[in-house]
Amino acid sequence: MRVYWLLVRRELGTFFVSWTGYIIIAAALFIMGLSFAGILQALNTEPLTLTIHELFYESVAFWLVLLVATPVLTMRLFAQEKQSGTFETLMTAPVSDVQVVLAKFTAALVFYGLMWLPLVAITLTLRQYTRQAAIVDFGALAGAMAGVLLLGMLYVAIGCLASALTRSQVVAAMLSFVTGLAIFLGGYLAYAVPPQLGWPHAVLSQMNIYQHLQDLSRGVVDSRAVVFCLSTTFLFLFLTLRAVESRRWK
């Protein structure tokens, strides 16, 4: 456990000693700010029928940040260490593969959480200036945050696996971006495939992260969403672990 926290701290530190961390946060902030300005504009012209955070999931900005930022912030995790050779010094220290995988995952997830912090500020600002307490329902906000976190876990886990498979950060980023995009778009297929088809529809609607997030941000905690995100996160982390262990396969 001590080693785990040590590694988490070290990984988090890496985000901030180089420019990567700041650039990712700045880019996410920029996109969110843009989206915020758009919402303000919309609020001025017509009355609102959705809750504020729902507007975010309707917006391209949210998905752009999720789909693009996660590959960028996870690509480094294993690939860079393999490239520079520090993976060898790490793995010849008395640490277990599980500790390393979980620590890297946790650090990336914490960073992902930090990245979304401005969103809270934006929501609160909106609440302040509209002077309408009802516009932000805290239950729904909590649901939305849970949704962001669950999706983050899934996407960070995908990034971990991609990074563990290669020593090139570019390849890792591409791989996790394509996988993440495939899951996102696959969910949309649920609307196109009729329910009469049986299992294809069932599978696709499980994958429909857009729908999941919408439910959560309305304060509806659907166990399907939670189960889907947690189980896929677990699957990808397990595969990451196997990838890390594979160097010791005979």
Binding site: T14, V17, S18, S84, G85, T86, F87, E88, T89, T92
Partner: peptide, 10 residues
């Protein structure tokens, strides 16, 4: 190890 890999940013 060979080539002495280090965390160069620390």
């Amino acid at each position: 190890p060979e080539h002495n890999p280090l965390h160069r940013d620390m």
